[in-house]
Amino acid sequence: MSNSPSKGTSHLAYTGFSLDRSTPSLWRVTFDTPPINLIDPVMIVALHDLLAEIEQDNRVAVVVFDSADADFFLAHYDIVADQSAFNALPAARTPFHHWANLLIRLSRSRAVTISALRGRARGAGSEFVLATDIRFASRERAVLGQFEVGFAAVPGGGPSTRLPGMVGRGRAFEILLGGEDFDGGLAERYGYVNRAVPDAEFVGFVNAFAERVSRFDLLALADIKRFVNAASLPAAAALIAEMDAFAEAAARPAAPSIIGQAFEHGFQQRSDVELNLGAYVGMVARKPRTATSG
């Protein structure tokens, strides 16, 4: 679980990421969980703690999320992780719902949140990116995707409700039904990210934008977020229903069978499967099933 930061601390290591209080108004969070930045219950609890710190500090205006791993921003959820860390959080309908609750809280945070995306963000990693306010991607190094359909599941952390308003109905279907990878350039064209920036310019661009916004009036920023959120965020009930559907899918026989095959080929390891997960999902063999079968 995370340490508890004190006022005046400029750099703090949580479990799963570090926090750099660059200035009182600009914070930077760097994910660092080898081998591939998997999201697990310990990280989720730490992120809840981070959001509490943001809510309690009325000086922070902007929070930038990035990664220490050149290949992985947030790979996806660790499906074999110990769930006991969730005991530190209020009870939820299922363990998966702690993730949905975090993403709802992240989107509604008073601070402006920016994903600085270099490397892969798939599944829950993509869901985290979609829950932040602004998404910048390295044109050459960013990869996004929702691969759950290939594992006989529906994404649970909000993409089915967030993506249609961002990319349009047809493109949302393409992303969610195809389970393919989207590089930075294509993600920009679709509206999956705000902008794809050449990698050589990426850090400077993100830093300049974050620093610019962090200098503006805090109340003005909060008001803008409040009105944009009211016009654009899906209802919390819709996000919870999506997680309900994911939990049901994960409990059906098909998903564990496919996941077992994936582990045999290097799933959740630094492997060709994880580096090229979108392509792998398209080759997974499964028995045909009807829409009504359980």
Rank of each mutant, 00 (worst) to 15 (best):
R212I: 00
R122Y: 03
Q56G: 07
K287I: 13
Q269G: 06
R162D: 06
Y77N: 04
A210H: 03
F151G: 03
T33V: 12
N194E: 15
N87W: 00
F147P: 03
T15W: 03
S18E: 12
D40T: 10
T33F: 08
A210E: 07
L233F: 11
G179P: 08
R139P: 01
A85S: 14
R110Q: 12
A235T: 12
V273S: 02
T23F: 00
I36V: 14
R59N: 12
M283E: 13
G156W: 10
F31M: 03
L74T: 00
S160G: 15
A254Y: 07
L177M: 13
L144N: 02
V29K: 02
V63C: 06
A131G: 09
P234W: 08
D49I: 07
D199K: 00
V167C: 15
V197L: 00
V29R: 01
H11N: 14
E127P: 02
N87L: 11
T9P: 01
A230G: 11
I54K: 02
F246E: 03
F128Q: 00
G179S: 11
I39H: 01
L233V: 09
R59F: 01
R215G: 09
D71G: 08
M166L: 15
A285F: 06
D20Y: 08
P24L: 05
A88W: 07
V273I: 11
E264Y: 03
R118I: 03
L50M: 10
Q269K: 13
G158R: 07
N101G: 00
E55P: 01
L103V: 02
S232F: 11
F267I: 01
A46L: 08
E127R: 02
P159W: 09
A220R: 08
V42T: 15
D49A: 15
L144H: 11
T23N: 03
H76F: 14
L117A: 08
R162N: 09
L218R: 13
S4P: 07
G282A: 08
G119A: 07
R139C: 07
G282C: 03
F73P: 03
A187M: 13
R93S: 12
V60Q: 04
S257E: 13
Y14L: 06
G294W: 10
T30W: 01
A124W: 02
D183F: 10
T33S: 14
F202M: 09
Y14K: 04
A92C: 09
F209K: 04
D69K: 04
R286I: 05
P198S: 05
D217M: 08
T15M: 07
A142W: 03
L218Y: 05
D272M: 06
A172C: 13
E55W: 04
R169T: 14
R215Q: 15
I259F: 11
P288R: 14
E188Q: 15
V197Q: 00
T161H: 15
A222I: 00
A116Y: 06
H265W: 02
G145W: 01
D78V: 10
S293W: 03
A92K: 07
M283G: 07
L130P: 04
G294M: 06
F216H: 10
A70S: 14
S107P: 04
F205E: 03
I175M: 11
F182I: 09
F263M: 14
S293V: 11
A250M: 13
G191R: 13
A247G: 08
I258W: 02
S109I: 00
